[in-house]
Design a protein around this nucleic acid. Sequence first.
DNA 1: CACGGCTGCCAC
DNA 2: AAACGTGGCAGCCGTG
Length: 620
Amino acid sequence: MSAEATDTRYVVVAPGEGQVVLTVVGADGTVLESRTLTGSGGTERSRTDHAPGAATDVDLTAAVRELERDGVRWTWADTALTYPPLLAAGVRVARCHDLRLARRILRNAAWLAGTPFARAAHDAWDDPAPVPGTTDGLFDSAALSPVRGPALDPVHELQRQLEVLRPAPSDPSTAPSSAPPQVPSQVPDDRRGRLRLLVAAESAGALVAAEMAFCGLPWRADVHDALLTTILGPRPVEGYRPAMLEAKLDEVRAALGTTDVNPDSPADLLRALRRAGLPVTSTRSWELKELDHPAVAPLLEYKKLARLWTANGWHWLDAWVRDGRFRPVYVVGGVVTGRWASDGGGALQLPHQVRDAVRADDGWSFVVADAAQLEPRILAAMSGDPAMARAGRAADMYEGIVATGAVETREHAKYGMLGAMYGGTQGVSGQVLPQLQRAFPRALGVVEQAAATGQRGGRVTTWLGRTSPPPGAQRSAAQGLASDPDADTAATDRARAQARSWGRFTRNFVVQGTAAEWALCWMALLRGRLRELGGEAALTGSPHLVFFLHDEVIVHTPAALADDVAEAVVACAVEAGRLLFGEPDAVEFRLSVARVTSYAQAKQPSQDGDAATRDQGVEG
DNA sequence: CACGGCTGCCAC
DNA sequence: AAACGTGGCAGCCGTG
């Protein structure tokens, strides 16, 4: 993930009608060479799987294989469109530059405000990527796709992005290349360097996402089905509830003295509960839990079972698991903070209940690794708070905080820190906040400052320069109203509440977003190491990433390599910390690492919160 | 009947 | 411990 190399050569892939143009561009933006690939006779493919931006008629694979040996950075509009066909043809690439993902980051970057790049008029590069596979007749997105139009020249776009990211010539680290057309402004080179790293990491993430979709998460439908049958009863006839749900529902109805309550309708259920004399204001589980009534227990059980049935039951299995693999669609950068989102399949919310269906292939293992207390460690690192960094070198950071004497118990440390990062004010969070502020003024200052900026309507940035969106029009309108002396108090209160809410968002943004950057770097580095471990073997025949969830990865690996993989995962976590925050390892990014054959054997959430008993992994 | 808002719960 | 951050998604229910 060497984002900095000045000798990098970019190969821009520009698909057109019946041809693909490959343009080699130097790090200074100079076009070095270009070649046109045309549909070679005989191998012409059907256009039925035509995706916009993908090289459909032209076989790219040979050219990619050849140029890949030179270590180039592949540059294309959308990794999600262009890379999957290459993977299907057995081709992998080491590095890429995703123009659309980079564009979004750079256009929003507050650090680049005032540059010509930031001020340029909106164009189609700012539009969302076309959706792959939407190619039916009238709404053929390929035909409509601006990617194919003359207006969107990927070479030109790369040149613009390289220019805005290029270090100023005064920077001693800059190679004395021919004077680049200078240069947007007084953006400090340090910031440009961070943005270069962010763009490289985001692009690497796009490669990982495509590869994970290609490989899929190993999923045993038979195990899943057996699990459902055990918990819910046999699969019911379509339109009927499973037996165990009906049984619980009978108990609920008996206890409430009704025969016809629909437990799936909150309004109906609420009425029935109140008729039975229960003083509830909603049907939320946590509210019901407080009540002493014979209907409560079976109702809570019903809700639990119903959730499993509707969200991850047989329908889900039919829809999302094929040939022993679960293939969710990951949306890189889909969350404003830089976290990934997913589209369909609920990949970001796989309940622990069903994780036993995630099984390694015969002779293979999973290495499941999860960053321990990632966000507080990130806050310690980005704030440079020496006392909190000391706590962040402990195996368990919350114990580390207790050891500084700032708070009494691990629970106080945990909920205090979570509250500080989320903007909590009530309960334990609020109580210990002053203690944390006293002990860690710089760290708490970072989040307080971010909250204050957001509350004023300002924007904040992560460590690498991802910038929060401007407050919505709705908020601004409310603000305007609030400053109007005639505004009624209700409107004023609403405006204040909205401002505070935006402050909580920006408070969390800087930490969550920087944690996402660490995780991207971690995964990008790991991807490279896994490729080395795999040697010449194909992606699915060697250790490969199969799952990523904010601060957690799963690698599917031949069992014989599992120990090497576990070591690599830990090494990459350390390296990711250095990449972002520099050499000294002021904070240690610890992992818990498990070598398992079922995902369910990896950490379980314990009932009493976040067990301090969890093992702290192989780096011990 | 499609769509969107709302509720509630899952994940981190 | 408490109802405080980011999301996805199923089902209900009112609206056009």
